[in-house]
Design a protein around this nucleic acid. Sequence first.
DNA 1: TTTAATTCGGATAAAATTGTCCTATTTAAT
DNA 2: ATTAAATAGGACAATTTTATCCGAATTAAA
Lengths: 146, 146
Amino acid sequence: MIFSKACEYGIRASVYIAQKSVSKERCNIKDISKEIDSPEAFTAKILQTLVHAQIIQSVKGAFGGFEITQKNLRKIKLIDIAIAIDGTLYDKTCVLGLKHCSENQPCPVHNQFKHIKKDLLCMMQNTHLLAMSTSVEAGLSCLKIA
Amino acid sequence: MIFSKACEYGIRASVYIAQKSVSKERCNIKDISKEIDSPEAFTAKILQTLVHAQIIQSVKGAFGGFEITQKNLRKIKLIDIAIAIDGTLYDKTCVLGLKHCSENQPCPVHNQFKHIKKDLLCMMQNTHLLAMSTSVEAGLSCLKIA
DNA sequence: TTTAATTCGGATAAAATTGTCCTATTTAAT
DNA sequence: ATTAAATAGGACAATTTTATCCGAATTAAA
Ligand code: SF4
Ligand code: SF4
């Protein structure tokens, strides 16, 4: 629903790393997967993708781990993570999965759905990583339940 | 994205069958999959699901096929088809895939997303099968592209 | 009654997604 | 130098989703 499992983990991991990075702390995959309740090895793979996409940074070796630059903390938005992991959103397939649909050749739900699609994209573009992490830090939201 | 492939085919097939049912025509799986551009055997499986869910009706044997009752033509909405095929929407997993999240224990995007989620659900509840089929019949929308 | 046109449903296959395991490599501390 | 703690990345396994195939059952028409 909306995102793949990989993307869900990726977003949650990013928010956790961001939270730590605000106070200049680095975190390792073991902590991350524990704190966001996700499979460790699979999450590690996803983090690699995010490193390649230059959304997060990794430091190898002892006392290494993952971190997010102060610049990215402000720059990265939800949509950047989603695109890095799930690929281009909506371009390939939309609600009814029509190939090459358009305003001229729409599916029967296009007019109802286009607003929602716009809102969703807009929301992803306006949801900043830092905002998500401060919300968690303030105890207003969480990255796992129990 | 939003729906599974199975659900996409299921919705498109339902709209096509509805379109035919308006003029009391019955259609078979060969026609359906040709007209909505979907894999025949897979679509047949999905239609079986919709028959079991009593959304469409099937008539076996020669000159048989699928049809939708006049009553269902008016009663069925997009959400009914989606639930029949993809199961309960959003209940299991939402944007960030948190288990047992709630207004009290929300993920960091809950406040931004809840409106979109409501709009989406609302749209599905208000999109009638008959409306979709008349839109296609009128040439205002289509179920396949080329 | 035979035949042809259908859906039904079980078995299976292919592909994509999700997940695990293990070794190599890197790096800081001792 | 050695060691311990990390990420990197390839190979593989499990699961889910998507898709195909085929024989059985049904039904109307010839
Ligand atoms: S809603 Fe619009 S963009 Fe999405 S599948 Fe339908 S026609 Fe295409
Ligand atoms: S948006 Fe709300 S309902 Fe959806 S996963 Fe987040 S907390 Fe749960």
